[in-house]
């Protein structure tokens, strides 16, 4: 799991429609600004969140995003947990390959999102769902 102490209460956004993906972006943006992430880091985190929220909707059949401000003593960061009870990912290596997709997209969502954040943790089980935790730290 990601290191760091929670600061404040996590905010949760359900993901069950297109508009919810927009709401996740806005929630992450607001939290990232409050945590004093640089503009580039805000942009990277919001972009990663957009990719992962869309995955939760399209591949996971909907779920939720939980956004929390965290601290590890030296720096602040924003942690987001995307969770769904969908079909899970049978082959993670494949799913992390640039250009691989089962959904007709560009196949950059998962691999691209991992490049844009500092910490990336994934749990998935076929038939049970997927849970992805990402963190971006201030520099």
């Amino acid at each position: 799991m990601t290191a760091g102490v929670d600061l404040g209460v996590p905010a949760t956004q359900a993901i069950s429609s297109d508009e919810d993906v927009v709401r996740v972006r806005q929630l992450v943006r607001t939290t990232a600004v409050a945590a004093r992430l640089s503009l580039v880091d805000q942009t990277k985190l919001v972009t990663a969140a957009s990719e992962l929220a869309r995955n939760t909707l399209i591949y996971g059949g909907g779920g939720s995003a939980e956004v929390t401000t965290v601290e590890d003593g030296r720096r602040r960061g924003v942690r987001i947990v995307f969770a769904d009870q969908g079909p899970g990912i049978p082959n993670l290596d494949e799913a992390f390959t640039d250009g691989f997709t089962t959904g007709g997209g560009l196949g950059l969502g998962l691999s691209g999102a991992r490049r844009l954040v500092d910490d990336f943790d994934i749990w998935t089980a076929v038939g049970e769902g997927t849970r992805i935790t990402v963190t971006k730290w201030s520099r």
Partner: peptide, 9 residues
């Protein structure tokens, strides 16, 4: 622009 390049787009 920076984010797009890192995303791989």
């Amino acid at each position: 622009a920076i984010t797009l390049v890192e995303l791989g787009l």
